[in-house]
Design a protein around this nucleic acid. Structure first.
Lengths: 321, 321
DNA sequence: TCAAAAGTGTTATCCTTACACCCATGT
DNA sequence: ACATGGGTGTAAGGATAACACTTTTGA
């Protein structure tokens, strides 16, 4: 009754850490190969749950002890591991997001931290609109949108220009939605603008002959997992106090703000940020001050664990500044 | 390198439909057996993606054509399919939420629609606080919380009384969080108050000898999948216009409100609800009126698909009424 | 002295919430 | 008449967003 091909369950983790003001993810990098997210098989014999399995092989492979872990999505696409010599074995991969603080320990050999905006450079608006958008991406997307939807007969609800407006805030300025990371990556893939689309033999790549590298590509669909992680983290920030998983136990409000900005990819309004964080009861002063700030010494704060008991939904909501 | 036990990927779907003011899910019911969610294996040979696989076997098994489909979570627990004669085969199951309108067609034999509050009766506050909470659940949870955390040495961040306060709004009245459906079910399971805990040989069941049935149990961990679906849907309502997937193309605002209340499990404030929905631009008048309302004829509305183009986040936010 | 960051105060605006109230239809 | 649901107006309160401004340190 059950036609059972050889199926393997893989666990992929986007392990995020902010170091030096830049968000990083842990990657395993082999010479001449695109980067890959840490990957481990799920062996039900050894591990009772997927989460436990993940923590275990991350510890073994990298020496890192994960704190916050959250399941993102399970991908089962045929062809996601398509190779020239695809033998018909299939991998269903479960993507995870994990957060760790800036750890002085370097991970084990074979793995390293890489800037996540290296993979998705159009997501970092902290220094204004990324030039890669205006110069490379938008002109090509416009060309792609002007094409008829010929071969994609799957009657999408939205037209291509509409999708551009929504995902990339074209036409209307300043309604860039920082949470649409995944939608943007998938649109770029569909338009043949991600190197992975070419690798996978996607038809849309025929449009482009002079294509520069738009963000560093990754193996398999790992860049999609990364985009999912970024979407989720940017969204979750606003209603759950997950940001503190990236911070040391004690920190200044400015440090907190910089971490939030690093994740969101844009600046926030300083004064309001501080007030909102304090009024929300998210933090409490430790009593100490830090003089290493380059200005007036700053009070040090710690995360108030009690907020977990108090408010059902809480986080750092904040528009640009 | 990869120790590969026999692994199978199963897809479970909570297929939700509101009929007669009550949310229902599709279940397959066998005599003398607990209900089960529709289940199908994932066969990568036949189906390119998990979503496609799901839609296909649902069509084959039930004759239903799914509209909105959303992946919920992937469960990999050993023992979730634990049987007396467990032979060591393992199933990783991917849970899905699907929404369909109230369809006059009955599903094929072997399956039927069952009220979802039959499985999780403490979640329906539309007629006030459910008596099962005050009479059965709360007293037992208090006993359970008074126990020392002996065997669960996994240093949970929160104590048992704290978890009760958060999940079941005990101590403080009226901060019942309708979205914590999953957390509540898992707490009940952990406390041995769900029939599934007894089936699985959970130790906490030793506390109870006179345990009535607290909600209709389901096979495997399907009640957990259902709880996940309920949590997700209640949350998503508020920032995405998913509710319209449950409605016919044209409807009155009162019908819309009743569907929202059915899902949320509590009443909302009529006047404000209507205004918020209209102001948000979620609906537009069709021009027709319905006289079947029992009162003054009501304008008929349809979902404004354009909202998808306009606002990044929109839904039916509303506190009680 | 200046730059940089720490902090405080105030106001306009929007959204939500909560009331009060009238309208149109069927029984 | 009255019950039921349809539909409008308005005002209080809270949260956010956008200002302007002072303070304290190190270079």
């Amino acid at each position: 009754m059950i036609s059972q091909a050889s199926i393997e369950i893989g666990l992929n983790a986007a392990i995020v850490s902010v170091r030096g003001g830049q968000p990083h993810i842990l990657v395993s990098r082999e010479a001449d190969q695109w980067d890959a997210l840490p990957y481990g098989p799920f062996t039900p014999i050894d591990h009772r749950t997927l989460d436990i399995g993940l923590r275990n092989w991350v510890r073994e492979q990298t020496g890192l002890e994960l704190g916050y872990v959250e399941q993102l999505y399970t991908f089962g696409d045929r062809g996601r591991h398509a190779q020239p010599d695809d033998t018909g074995s299939h991998i269903v991969s479960v993507g995870y997001l994990a957060l760790i603080t800036e750890d002085p320990l370097e991970p084990l050999e074979g793995t390293s931290f890489a800037r996540w905006y290296g993979f998705l450079p159009w997501e970092d608006w902290r220094n204004g609109k990324p030039s890669i958008l205006t110069e490379e991406i938008e002109p090509r997307l416009k060309r792609w949108a002007a094409q008829m939807d010929q071969d994609d007969s799957h009657a999408s609800v939205l037209t291509r220009p509409e999708r551009l407006r929504i995902c990339f805030a074209m036409d209307e300025e300043s309604n860039w939605d920082e949470e649409k990371v995944l939608e943007r990556y998938e649109l770029l893939y569909e338009a043949g603008l991600a190197a992975e689309a070419k690798r996978d033999g996607h038809s849309a790549v025929k449009l482009w002959d002079d294509l520069p590298q738009l963000g560093r590509p990754m193996q398999f669909d790992h860049r999609r997992v990364l985009a999912t992680a970024m979407s989720r983290l940017r969204g979750k920030l606003k209603y759950r106090p997950v940001i503190f998983e990236l911070l040391p136990v004690s920190f200044t409000l400015f440090e907190l703000q910089k971490i939030v900005e690093a994740i969101l990819g844009h600046h926030v309004h300083k004064q309001n940020f501080r007030r909102l964080v304090e009024n929300a009861g998210l933090v409490e002063a430790t009593g100490d001050v830090s003089t290493q700030t380059g200005g007036r010494p700053a009070k040090l704060f710690r995360f108030r664990r009690d907020v977990l008991l108090e408010r059902p939904s809480i986080g750092v909501k904040m528009k640009g500044g």
